[in-house]
Structures are given as C-alpha cells and as structure tokens.
C-alpha cells in the first residue's frame, strides 16, 4: 500500500463521514458543520487528483460562502438547533429513501467496477493538468460558456434579491 493510497483512504473516509453526518445528524446545525467537513475532504480528493486549482476554489466558495449562507438561512427560518426526537428532521419516507439510495449505490458501484476502463483508454496514473493550460483553455476555447455562466450568476443574484427582500407592508 503506497503512501498515496493511505492518504486517499484517509481523505475518503473523512468525506464519507462528513456526508453521513450531513444526512443523519439529529441537529440541523451539526448537519451543516458536517457539510463543511465533507466539503474540505472533497477538496483533499481534488488535490489527490492533482486539481489543485479546483481544490482552492472549493475551499473558497463552498467552505466559505456556501456554508455561511446555509447557516444564515437556518437562522432565519428557525430550523430547530436542539437535538430532537426521531422523525422531527426526517420525513416518513425514510425507509424508501434508504432503499432507493442503496439500490442506486449498488448499480453505480457495479458499473464502476464492471467497466473495463483500460479498454476505454484510462491510464494507470494521474496525469496532472498544468495551471497555465487550464487557464488558457478556460479563456480561449471555453470563453463563450464562461461568459454565459457569468450572466447566469448575475441573473441569479438579481433573482435572489428580488425573491428574498421584504415587500411593502410585509
């Protein structure tokens, strides 16, 4: 077992732990904190995949902005932050949810393991992508989608403000 594998299993375990915490925690705020753990661990996975840039972006946007936003909304909508009885945070279709998730996991893992990736051209090792190439590609070949994405962000921003602001007399 190489040291890379050791690191992978460690980071993967952290990710799964965080994710389990998100979906199972009895306390909504704990759930949000577990989400931070999961997101940071995924950033670690990105580094293992030699996508350092994405890892940084992940930490900045998810670890910072998104989780803060979520915690704010929790506060505003008064999601219970005290531990509560079972079923308070979960709906009645929890058994079906577990069944569906399990079925999906089985199919997905089966597909991942049964496929002959070498035949599809997969290499043994990770091929790091240099920063410069990524930047060039993003602003040359992918310039149009990039601009569209910025427009989407702008519209989402305006939409969020319109939806969330207090109206007259409210």
């Amino acid at each position: 077992m190489s040291y890379e594998e050791v690191i992978f299993y460690f980071v993967a375990a952290l990710t799964v732990l965080g994710a389990l915490g998100v979906v199972l925690a009895r306390n909504a705020v704990h759930s949000a904190l577990f989400l931070i753990l999961a997101l940071l661990a995924v950033a670690g996975v990105f580094i293992l995949l030699s996508a350092e840039f994405l890892a940084i972006v992940q930490v900045l946007i998810y670890g910072g902005a998104v989780t803060i936003l979520i915690l704010f909304v929790m506060m505003l909508t008064r999601v219970r932050d005290t531990p509560s009885a079972a079923g308070e945070l979960d709906g009645p279709q929890r058994p079906f949810a577990a069944l569906a998730a399990g079925a999906f996991l089985a199919i997905s893992v089966l597909a991942a393991l049964a496929t002959d990736w070498e035949a599809l051209g997969a290499t043994e090792e990770i091929n790091p992508v240099p920063f410069e190439e990524l930047g060039e590609a993003l602003f040359r070949n992918w310039a149009a989608p990039f601009e569209v994405a910025s427009l989407v962000l702008l519209v989402a921003l305006i939409g969020a403000i319109v939806l969330a602001r207090h109206e007259e007399g409210e």
């Binding site: 279709q93 949810a97 569906a100 079925a103 199919i107």
Partner: peptide
C-alpha cells in the same frame, strides 16, 4: 422519490 425510482429502473 418517484424521480429517483425512475432513474434506477432506467439504469
């Protein structure tokens, strides 16, 4: 749930 079931069946 219906959507996910559909996805699974299709898969």
């Amino acid at each position: 749930l219906a959507i996910v079931t559909g996805v699974i069946v299709l898969a």
